[in-house]
Each structure stands twice: as C-alpha cells, then as structure tokens.
Design a protein around this nucleic acid. Sequence first.
DNA 1: CCCATTGTACGAGAGCTGTCGTAATTCTAC
DNA 2: GTAGAATTACGACAGCTCTCGTACAATGGG
Lengths: 128, 128
Amino acid sequence: MTSNAGRALAHPSREEIRVEGVLHALSDPIRLRIVRQLAHDADELACSRFDLPVSKSTSTHHFRVLRESGVIQQFYRGTAKLSGLRTDDLDTLFPGLLDSVLGAADLQAKRLAADARTDAPETAGLQG
Amino acid sequence: MTSNAGRALAHPSREEIRVEGVLHALSDPIRLRIVRQLAHDADELACSRFDLPVSKSTSTHHFRVLRESGVIQQFYRGTAKLSGLRTDDLDTLFPGLLDSVLGAADLQAKRLAADARTDAPETAGLQG
DNA sequence: CCCATTGTACGAGAGCTGTCGTAATTCTAC
DNA sequence: GTAGAATTACGACAGCTCTCGTACAATGGG
C-alpha cells in the first residue's frame, strides 16, 4: 500500500468546533507559537520542522490538543505528519477570530521585544 | 468613612496584560458568559446581577481570574462590587480581539440554539 | 448596636494539564 | 529482512483549575 490512509487521525467536524476549545487551545504559549509559525511560514509543516523547547512527547500532546479542538488538521505523508491551520473552517465559524488572535500575538511579541531592548542595555547589558 | 478606598483590588497594568492570559480567561464557559453579559447588557454590573450556575465562591474565583488576566476591572461601591470590561486597554493592546471573540461566541450561541431546535422535535435524540 | 446584604478567604477534593522517559509503531532505503 | 528516521502510545508525576462549604469582613439601614 502506498496510501497513507492506514493511519487516520480523528478530527472534529466543523460543527463540533467550539469557541471555548479554540481559545483554550490558543491560550498555551507553545501552542500559540505553533499556530503562529503555521500562519506565517507555511500552510503545511511537518512536526519535526518546529523547534520547540519541549520533548517530542510533549509536542505530540500539544499538536493533538490543537487538532482535537479544531484549530489544525493533520495527515500523514510517509513518515512525516503534516499540520496545517483549518483556516476555512475557523473563518466560517468565527469570522476574524483567528486573524485577531494572530495579530494580537504578533503585537505582543513586538512589544515584549521592544521592552527587552529598552530594559536590558541599561541594567543588565545583555543583548541578542 | 464613606470612602471605598479601604478595599483596593489588584489589577494588572496595561503593559502586564498577556494575550495567553486573556485567551485562557475567555476559554472558560462561565467566564465567557460573564464577559458576554458585560458586553451586551451594561458597562458596569454588580457581581450579584449575574445569574450563574455556580456557588458564590466559584463566582468570586472566576471574577478574579478575569480581573487578574486584565479582561475586567472591578471596584467597590457600598457593599457591591462593580465589574466592567477593560475595553480600551484590550482594544489598544489587541485590536479587534475582544470583538471577534464576542462575535464568535454570539454566532456559536445562535448556531447551537438552532441545532437544538432542529434536533429535538424531529427525532428526539437520534441524529446522523 | 444589631442585622441583612454582599462579597472574600480558606481549606479541601476531583479532575484536567503540561511535562517527561521509554517502548512501540509506521514508513523509507538498502 | 534490516537499519534508521519520524512520530505515537503509555505510564507517571507535579501543578493548576474548578468546584464547593463554611467562616469571616465590609457596608448600609433600623
């Protein structure tokens, strides 16, 4: 069998996605980071392409939370598992939600980076 | 003393508000309900005006989570504690986030209500 | 002062969450 | 078939979360 259908992954249907679950999935820093990378870098990435500060087991856990809450879809291709945002489903169910969360995360990242630049040089003197 | 200053409540400053914390605060059904009621019914409501399906202790807990994450502000007036959304701070930090979450919650509420109407009368529990 | 109203604090318990390490599974390449 | 790479599954653990009940504090009116 050359098909990848042997390993099917459970996804919630569009109707089963709940806004509370989506918000909860996005409220973890690691998962938010995954989603931001998916949104910015590519539509579909293998899990191994993410450089996360946790073990593989923990990564698997976070990807599963994202998938089971309806934020991402996953499928196998060879030994790799590719992940992509369920942009269409989310935009249909909750228009603008994903974009504003991603925008908020970007703004916060910029703000925190700027804070670090203004804080550090004076006191600590350590910079990247 | 007629002042209400005796009981001060700790709030995060605008700069301390984190998007992960806001999303986590909004990911609980009870808290999302509180926020929706604050957004729709009034700008400032006493805690006792919320008809929540939990005990007073639990309500206090949820209001504290919302306050400490920066979603709401609270102050005392007499024996009452009034709560209001920090709309300005949130809109400045995360433009559009609060609105899209509230919109998503409204859409989902309508959708679930419609599903219940089409599910129940016809088959009374059997669905494809 | 006493009391009703309103909300807090504290302690507790059940359950979920994030994390890890190790063992197992699936696919590709030889 | 064998080896290797990518990922999952399982069991375990500490910590957090949601919930409650009871006891306590602050305000306003008699």
